[in-house]
Design a protein around this nucleic acid. Structure first.
Lengths: 133, 133
DNA sequence: CTACGGCTTCAAGTTGACTTGAAGTCAAGA
DNA sequence: TCTTGACTTCAAGTCAACTTGAAGCCGTAG
């Protein structure tokens, strides 16, 4: 079983070493074995980090990822953990998409409809059309 | 022409006074007139702040909003400014939507396909299916 | 006169996910 | 032996858009 140094792990997964130390610090990774003070890893850390990245790509925060790893009864299979957390996340994502869609709509309207000369006239129009709140 | 205090402006537009001072500090609002040290505003600030809020709703940063106000030849009508800046923003928004959509897809796949028992198996699967980079 | 409310400035804190920098340890090579 | 390079820890910095806190000024009501 090969002994990976922190920079070797970093290279393989495409992270900075500082990020890996940070993950250990905040409890995403368990404290690594040390050889004269230096961290040594085996292959399983690569799997863990792959899951971390996949989760980040899916929009999870590191807090949520820690829950994914350590926030369940130990016997819970990871597939169950994903499902549980993904459920919550999905709702969030949908809300974010909707919000951005409405920004888009607003931008379109601004692009095509605004004929204002000055900032003040434009602001006055906004206040008239929608109220202050 | 009524003289509005900072808290009166804040009340009317639904901001904290600290936000209004902050806008002045970073150059979104011009320094206000002072009466014995205290800021006094007239109605036009309400229009400006309405534009600020509308721009924020459309996803602009304060930096971009400052450009909207001060980053053009003074004679440029605000409608032109909106169009110019909105163009750039639209591209950004589209990218963000696409990214979130792909997160959603990923989550769906995780929910429906992941059968892994352990984190390590799951990570191994991820690495096998997509490569490390 | 004093208390009070509202205002002022300036510095520092907040959140998330790290990065950067300083100072020090350690093993190996010239 | 000395240097080099990779590593260590710990503290502080980064970004955005503010908020919070401390200390102090100003005008007015009692």
């Amino acid at each position: 079983m090969p002994q990976l140094s922190i920079s070797e792990v970093a290279r393989q997964v495409g992270l900075r070493t500082s990020a890996i130390r940070y993950y250990e610090e905040i409890g995403i990774l368990a404290p690594a074995r040390r050889v004269s003070g230096q961290r040594r890893y085996d292959d399983t850390v690569l799997y863990r980090l792959a899951v971390v990245r996949r989760a980040q790509e899916a929009g999870f925060t590191l807090d949520e990822i820690r829950q994914l790893f350590f926030g369940f009864v130990p016997s819970t299979p990871i597939s169950q953990r994903w499902k549980k957390i993904a459920e919550r996340k999905m709702v969030e994502l949908d809300a974010r998409i909707e919000q951005i869609q409405s920004m888009r709509t607003l931008l379109k309207k601004l692009q095509s409809c605004c004929e204002c000369e000055t900032v003040e006239r434009c602001g006055a129009g906004i206040l008239r059309s929608r109220g202050v709140s």
